[in-house]
Design a binder for these strands. Structure first.
Lengths: 345, 345
DNA sequence: TAAATCTGCGCAATCGTTTGTCCAAGGTAA
DNA sequence: TTACCTTGGACAAACGATTGCGCAGATTTA
């Protein structure tokens, strides 16, 4: 259990040469004589020498570590996203420092702080639901640590981001439903302050506008994403004088809760009332009633893209683009309508 | 714009004092005068100074980073586990370097290598299904980097591990089924080489032995965990002359596939044939037919425990237990039978 | 009054590695 | 013979922070 890792110094002392000679010999520098070079390289191999990356990174002021902060890794969307991030990272020899915000801005701030301390080369983040204040993140950029947002992105322009255009996706969704003959289309939207919520709402309204129809606000409900809140929303929709024939849920989790409640009310799911949703989690295919149609948001692709952007930024920085105007990457990914195979039965 | 992060040096220069004074002032050292102290602390706050952990850790030869390698983060079991790991890590100011093996030993090896280069203080790992060779991990320990295994642990004694006793859990499960009057109890087990598979099988056999019964090997099937393989296993069971009245699935994913197939064969799930399983993923409560009973394996608890053990090991090392005999932590967690609420309907 | 103590802070080494600069010895050309 | 390369390697600074030690000047004590 000899935990002293061999260093360049150790080798130098043993061979009675200077550390710089050892360093150069190991790097195959032309200024070192062949004899010395082989002596050094042989001893290095014998001692199982490995350069201390910590020391090198410290000197280079670079860690090859990217911080990744997600709301909840247990959500399949994010676990897929991190896999995309990891894939791109691995391809470029970067590593991932991981943290969750649990949708708590305080916690998010703390994790950001930790990552700053660890001197990550960059930060990829999907914001917590409650985050309204972006100072802790903008501060990072001021210090030269680039931040790439994905999926849950901030509302301002001057930031690198990757996201799905859920406005368009929602318009398509509404269109599709109209096309299938559904007229009373309700939406159970997310927390009102969330940009993602506004995007869906706007798409929803736009979908109606295209048909020269006005939205009946009785068909618009919100949930704080808890099961209870979703139950309440469905209850309210079902109790309306002219109840919906289709329900768009904020995401697959809301969808599942909504279906659960409707089922308790003895409603024939996807017959009396059809359910459609966002996210298209593979896991829904195992549920009793998957959404008839889902808007795929490509979490893996978003993650991958976010990391690729990060790497571009870091490379640009090395090539000294200082002084030039900062360009913000803004990657809009398609949001595709996906028909559930099972539902076709 | 591209301001470098403030350093202790920068503060020293601005206030015209030495770096050591700044360092001590920030650490609230008693030998620094109150006036100097406040001047330093105020400027530090103003500049948003954060100590460079890289530098400190480099000097201390410690990173406060723990590598975590999981097979698939998208499995809820592991995403819960990492949350437990993260919680314990945060409490002790450790951070997590994340990697997935995707159940590929080659990939696992590569990730281990990366973590070694990054000089993690320790490694927490749940082995890939295929891992048979442990050299890359034992080498880490030789370098003084402790390894804690959880859930999917290696078969040898001299390793720190956290796991559930699925042998006992399976015995309990079989007992419970007998108690409910089920006599033809089948099991769809995992890949034969997996220790977890053997454990389940032994528990299954023991459960029968306790009732002075012999196992009918026709009731024992294996799956490689793919949907197709599971389908095949169920098909084989259903085709038997004396088909089972209860099926124990290797885990909830196998369970879901098994149920899906049985359903396609027009079997009344949990009536004609009851299904029970391991893992107890919350997500199953949304499925059409959750397992009647699940063996809870406490992924969060396992992760938390693994990190706590890691921290104990690291603390022991600091306190210089060198020379003493190495003690291997071996934490066996209970595997509890959980009755599904929904199934009671 | 001199010695001892205290107060407040600076100097420099250290961690492992890279890299610019310098230096000595030997060889070569004019 | 002298000035000038070439070769092979040593020296030292630097990255950011910590910390033992030293050293003034002020204050207290004997």
């Amino acid at each position: 259990m000899d935990n002293k890792l061999p260093t360049i110094k150790e080798i130098a002392k043993r061979l009675n040469v200077s550390v710089s000679t050892v360093s150069r010999a190991l790097a195959d520098h032309p200024r070192i004589g062949l004899r010395t070079k082989t002596r050094v390289q042989e001893l290095a191999k014998e001692l199982n020498y490995e350069p201390n990356a910590q020391a090198i990174f410290f000197k280079q002021r670079k860690t090859f570590v990217i911080g990744v902060i997600l709301p909840y890794i247990r959500e399949e969307f994010f676990s897929q996203a991190i896999s995309g991030i990891e894939k791109a990272a691995m391809e470029h020899e970067y590593t991932i420092l991981f943290g969750q915000s649990f949708d708590d801005p305080e916690r998010e701030k703390k994790v950001v702080e930790t990552m700053k301390k660890q001197r990550v080369d960059g930060l990829i983040i999907s914001l917590s639901k409650q985050t309204q204040n972006y100072e802790h993140l903008q501060a990072l950029e001021k210090f030269g640590i680039p931040v790439v947002y994905f999926d849950r992105v901030p509302p301002f322009e001057h930031a690198h981001k990757v996201y799905c255009n859920l406005f368009k996706g929602t318009v398509d969704m509404v269109n599709w439903l109209f096309g299938r003959g559904y007229k009373r289309i309700a939406i159970i939207n997310g927390p009102e302050k969330l940009p993602a919520t506004k995007e869906r709402l706007n798409g929803y309204i736009e979908g109606f506008s295209k048909k020269k129809l006005k939205v009946d606000m009785q068909l618009v409900e919100n949930t704080d994403l808890s099961k209870e809140s979703t139950y309440r929303a469905v209850k309210s929709l079902l109790a309306s004088k002219n109840p919906p024939t289709a329900i768009i849920s904020f995401n697959d989790y809301v969808h599942m809760d909504a279906v659960q409640y409707a089922q308790q009310q003895n409603i024939q799911i996807n017959k009396d009332l059809v359910f459609v949703s966002y996210a298209n989690l593979p896991i829904t295919s195992y549920t009793a009633h998957p959404p008839l149609v889902s808007i795929e948001q490509y979490p893996y692709g978003q993650g991958e893209k976010a990391m690729e952007i990060m790497i571009s930024i870091l490379n640009d920085k090395i090539e000294g683009k200082t002084g030039q105007q900062v360009v913000y990457y803004n990657e809009e990914m398609p949001a595709t309508l996906v028909l559930n195979q099972q539902s076709l039965l």
